[in-house]
Computed example of a mutant assay.
Amino acid sequence: MIDLHCHLLPGVDDGARDMEEALALAQLAVEQGITHSVLTPHIHLRHYPNTLESLTPHFHRFKKALAQRAIPLQVALGAEVRMAPELLLGEAWKGLPKLGSTEQGRPVLLLEMPYSHVPAGTAQLLRWLSSQGVQPVVAHPERNREIIAHPSLALTLKGTGAWLQGTLSALGGSFGVEIKRVAWELLDKGAYHYLASDAHRIDKRSTRVEHVLQMLTEGLGFEQTQVLTQDRPWAIVASRF
């Protein structure tokens, strides 16, 4: 699996609390079949005012620690960016960490909505980013309360040209029956461009993904599961590794 959404970088957001937990998550990821991970710490002005410059030293320390422990997880630095005008409009998006790029060379940017609702103007913002040459990805739409009530809203966002990223643990039921139902509905409708772990901590929302991958293989078949967890993610990040 190629994981394009995880919070393994220690001490910078609500993910891994320290280096030991980060390394434990990385070791578990390897054991579960994850070979490459793009680390996506939150960038959120109010709670996690991270920047590419502030995150880079943390990334290099983590990469060095992986090598010292001989943990064969390949990593790159990205971010999960809160969908806010201050972070995205004008030239601001250019300074944000990207996941990778499309086959056409468009930078791929992972975006997060609030869980409570789909903010007014979200579709317009996604279209504007596309007009700037960006490929936006909307993280875990299945966990947004407004989309839970009206799953077709996720398809409306996809209709802007944005990609949607589903979360494996949501498909596995870790967030409850209702979110699992919406996640599988979106999956069945072909809404997701790829799936990721969104791993945070070793004791909750970890990199333990093998059982959900098995469920997907049984439900979708091996080829489609590979498209969602390996082929499409790798097409985005191949140039980074």
Rank of each mutant, 00 (worst) to 15 (best):
residue 181 R to E: 11
residue 50 N to P: 11
residue 229 T to Q: 13
residue 200 H to V: 01
residue 1 M to P: 11
residue 179 I to M: 10
residue 32 Q to K: 08
residue 83 M to D: 01
residue 75 V to T: 06
residue 102 T to G: 02
residue 50 N to I: 00
residue 149 A to R: 15
residue 172 G to W: 07
residue 43 I to A: 02
residue 200 H to T: 02
residue 35 T to D: 07
residue 102 T to C: 08
residue 130 S to P: 05
residue 183 A to F: 13
residue 138 V to W: 12
residue 145 R to G: 03
residue 157 L to W: 09
residue 240 R to H: 13
residue 116 S to W: 12
residue 153 L to Y: 06
residue 135 Q to E: 15
residue 225 T to P: 12
residue 130 S to I: 15
residue 238 A to W: 09
residue 133 G to E: 14
residue 7 H to S: 08
residue 7 H to T: 01
residue 134 V to Y: 04
residue 75 V to H: 07
residue 236 I to C: 10
residue 144 N to A: 10
residue 51 T to D: 06
residue 152 S to M: 12
residue 187 L to I: 00
residue 130 S to N: 07
residue 118 V to I: 13
residue 173 G to W: 10
residue 63 K to M: 07
residue 108 V to Y: 05
residue 122 T to Y: 11
residue 84 A to C: 10
residue 210 E to F: 10
residue 37 S to A: 15
residue 140 H to K: 13
residue 96 L to T: 00
residue 175 F to H: 05
residue 168 L to A: 04
residue 216 L to F: 10
residue 159 G to R: 08
residue 32 Q to M: 11
residue 45 L to N: 08
residue 18 D to N: 13
residue 75 V to E: 03
residue 77 L to I: 00
residue 15 G to Q: 02
residue 43 I to T: 01
residue 55 L to F: 11
residue 103 E to Y: 03
residue 156 T to N: 07
residue 132 Q to V: 04
residue 80 E to H: 06
residue 207 T to Y: 09
residue 110 L to H: 05
residue 188 D to H: 14
residue 122 T to R: 11
residue 48 Y to I: 02
residue 5 H to Q: 14
residue 74 Q to T: 10
residue 107 P to K: 04
residue 50 N to V: 01
residue 206 S to F: 05
residue 84 A to I: 01
residue 180 K to N: 12
residue 129 L to W: 03
residue 76 A to Q: 08
residue 175 F to K: 07
residue 160 T to K: 12
residue 29 A to E: 03
residue 58 H to L: 03
residue 28 L to G: 11
